[in-house]
C-alpha cells in the first residue's frame, strides 16, 4: 500500500482548481488543510452527512425518559407520600425536569459525538511529519489525496497535482 500524497499550493484558487480536477479524473481526495475555512470545499470533498443530530436526539430522549422514570419511581414507589391528595404520579409536574435535562443531555451527547466523529482528541497525525506542513495554519494550502494501488495511476496522480499548480508534492510523512 502506497502512502497518500500531500500537495502544497500557494493560494485557495489553485487548491480548489486541483481538487475539482482530481475529482473529475476519478482520484480519491482524503482531506484538505487550509489556513481558513473554504466553504467551496464542502461540496468537493463530499463529507458524509453527519450523524451528530441522531446521537443528540437519542441522547436527549434517553435522558428525558430516565429523568421521568426517576421521578416516577421515587415518588410513586420508593417513597410514596400523599401530599394533599395529589396523585403520586403527578405527570404535569414531572414534565419539566425531563425537558430541561433532556435538552442538556442532547447538547452533551452532540459534543461527545462531535469529538468521536473527528477522532479527537488526537495528539499526533502522520500528516504532521510532512515537510512544510506547519504552514497549513499560516499561508499555504494542502491537499491530501490517496494513490490507488496501480503504479501508473499513482504516477498520474503525482503528475496531475504538479500540473494543477502544486508547489510541491510529497508523500505523507516525508
Amino acid at each position: 500500500m502506497t502512502k497518500p500524497l500531500v500537495a502544497e499550493f500557494r493560494d485557495a484558487e489553485s487548491l480548489l482548481g486541483a481538487a475539482v480536477r482530481l475529482k473529475r479524473e476519478g482520484h480519491q481526495l482524503l482531506d484538505a488543510f487550509t489556513p481558513f475555512r473554504l466553504p467551496e470545499l464542502d461540496g468537493i470533498l463530499a463529507a458524509k452527512p453527519s450523524r451528530i443530530r441522531h446521537s443528540m436526539l437519542v441522547g436527549g430522549l434517553a435522558m428525558a425518559a430516565f429523568a421521568y422514570l426517576l421521578q416516577w419511581y421515587s415518588s410513586a414507589i420508593d417513597y410514596a407520600l400523599n401530599t394533599g391528595g395529589r396523585p403520586l404520579n403527578s405527570w404535569p409536574v414531572f414534565l419539566l425536569v425531563p425537558f430541561e435535562v433532556g435538552m442538556l443531555a442532547a447538547a452533551l451527547s452532540g459534543f461527545a459525538a462531535f469529538l468521536w466523529n473527528c477522532r479527537l482528541p488526537c495528539l499526533h497525525h502522520p500528516a504532521f511529519d510532512t515537510a512544510q506542513f506547519e504552514r497549513a495554519s499560516q499561508d499555504r494550502f494542502f491537499l491530501l489525496a490517496v494513490q490507488t494501488g496501480e503504479e501508473e495511476r499513482s504516477a498520474s496522480l503525482r503528475e496531475l497535482l504538479m500540473h494543477s499548480g502544486a508547489l510541491a508534492v510529497r508523500e505523507q510523512g516525508s
Binding site: 394533599g84 395529589r86 404535569p92 409536574v93 414534565l95 419539566l96
Partner: peptide, 12 residues
C-alpha cells in the same frame, strides 16, 4: 403557561 398552572396546582 405550564409553570403558572403548576404553581397554582401546588398551591391548591
Amino acid at each position: 403557561g405550564l409553570m403558572s398552572f403548576i404553581v397554582i396546582w401546588y398551591g391548591n
